[in-house]
Structures are given as structure tokens and as C-alpha cells.
């Protein structure tokens, strides 16, 4: 039961083929750290995974995509790729909050903070108790993130800001964890879900006032 996994919510351009029949087993993965390379790198990464695993697209059961939160332009590349890839093959799509994959990777932690780079001196964050999300996702200044009682922090935000707790090794959403978060839905043949990006911010746009006079 093979699924294509895509996540472009961070600087890690992620594609993988994961077998979710039993424990999520990664059959092929390509993860490239390039914050501005999603548009160019993602499709070749998927092609490389298919080729490495010797799998044809028609053999895939579903596409699982990280829905963010993450920088908008890169995030959209992953979501539109997942949506169109699945639509043309007639297979379902399942969305996973990208932070949940980091939460899943740290599911032995009683109180985990996941923090990723939201740029503009902010982080996207969520809190997890043994893998289950208990707060977030949200976007805040690092000082405003509730850190009471946390036992560890995961995600690239931990490299950028000091949260005063041990730092776990996972920096970006691990492909196997992304697949695990959707595995029940894949196995149950749940209805396909629209992939709705978690932007968490409105577009920066302000309605203009009256036109400025050109005559001095």
C-alpha cells in the first residue's frame, strides 16, 4: 500500500514513497534543503523516488501532503503538485499538518514543542503530548510561545531561537512520520480531502486611499 509523500512547508523539499501496509516503511526518499528551490526541485525529486523504488505512478494508492504551516510560495508548490498528481491518477489526497509529523517523530516526549521558521522573526509552533497535538498550530514571536512544562523542542525553529530545553534531532517533517499521520485514512480508504494550506497569516495588502494629486 504505497503512498507518495510530499512536504514543502520548510526549507526541506521533501518527496518520498512510503508503504503504509504495516509500520510506515520508507521505500525511497529525497530531501533537499533549499528554501528557494521548491519549484524546481520537487518534481525531479518525485521522479527520482519513483525510479529508485522501481514504482510506476499507477501503483500508488494515495498522495499525502504536508499542509503547513510554512512560507506560502514553497508550501503552494507542494500542495498543487500533490493535488494535480492525485487528480490525474484518480487517487485520493490526504493532508497532514506538517508540524504533526515532527510531533509524531517525538512521540516519546510527554510535552514537546515543535517550532519552525516563519521568517519575520516569528515561528510556526504547536505543542504535543506523546505525539498528540494539544495546542496550535499558531504563528508567534518566539518569546510569546507558551513553553511552560515542555520537555523538548523539535523543528528548525530550535536552531534559530533558544527555548531553554533539550533540542531533538528532527529539524524538518520526516517523510515516514508524515505517512504515519495519514496511514489510518489511507488504509480505511477514507474520502479524498481537499488540501487546504495552513497559511495562518492574511495576505499583506492594503486597500489604497484616494489617488495622489500629480499637480504640485
Amino acid at each position: 500500500m504505497l503512498v507518495l509523500v510530499i512536504d514543502t512547508s520548510s526549507a526541506a523539499v521533501t518527496a518520498a514513497l512510503v508503504d503504509v501496509s504495516g509500520q510506515a516503511t520508507v521505500r525511497a526518499e529525497r530531501v533537499t534543503i533549499n528554501a528557494r528551490g521548491h519549484g524546481e526541485l520537487l518534481a525531479p525529486s518525485i521522479a527520482a523516488c519513483l525510479s529508485a523504488a522501481g514504482v510506476a505512478p499507477a501503483e500508488l494508492r494515495a498522495v499525502v501532503a504536508g499542509t503547513g504551516p510554512g512560507p506560502f510560495t514553497g508550501l503552494r508548490v507542494g500542495l498543487v503538485t500533490a493535488a494535480v498528481f492525485a487528480a490525474t491518477l484518480g487517487i485520493p489526497t490526504y493532508g497532514v499538518c506538517s508540524l504533526d509529523a515532527l510531533g509524531d517523530a517525538g512521540r516519546d516526549e510527554p510535552a514537546l514543542l515543535v517550532a519552525t521558521d516563519a521568517r519575520r522573526a516569528e515561528v510556526y509552533w504547536a505543542r504535543y503530548a506523546r505525539g498528540a497535538r494539544v495546542d496550535g498550530p499558531a504563528v508567534s514571536r518566539p518569546a510569546e510561545v507558551p513553553t511552560d512544562g515542555i520537555t523538548a523542542v523539535a523543528g528548525q525553529g530550535a536552531d534559530l531561537y533558544d527555548f531553554g530545553v533539550p533540542v531533538r534531532p528532527e529539524r524538518y517533517p520526516p517523510p515516514g512520520s508524515l505517512a504515519r499521520c495519514a496511514a489510518d485514512r489511507v488504509r480505511a480508504r477514507a474520502p479524498s480531502e481537499p488540501l487546504v494550506p495552513l497559511y495562518l497569516r492574511r495576505p499583506d495588502a492594503v486597500a489604497p486611499g484616494a489617488p495622489k494629486a500629480v499637480t504640485p
Binding site: P57, V80, A83, V84, F85, T88
Partner: peptide
Amino acid sequence: VAAAKAYALALG
């Protein structure tokens, strides 16, 4: 561009 690549890749 990403949509077109996904279409092309999925169906060869």
C-alpha cells in the same frame, strides 16, 4: 508550473 509538472510526471 508545479501543476503542469505533476500532470506530466503522473501520466508520463
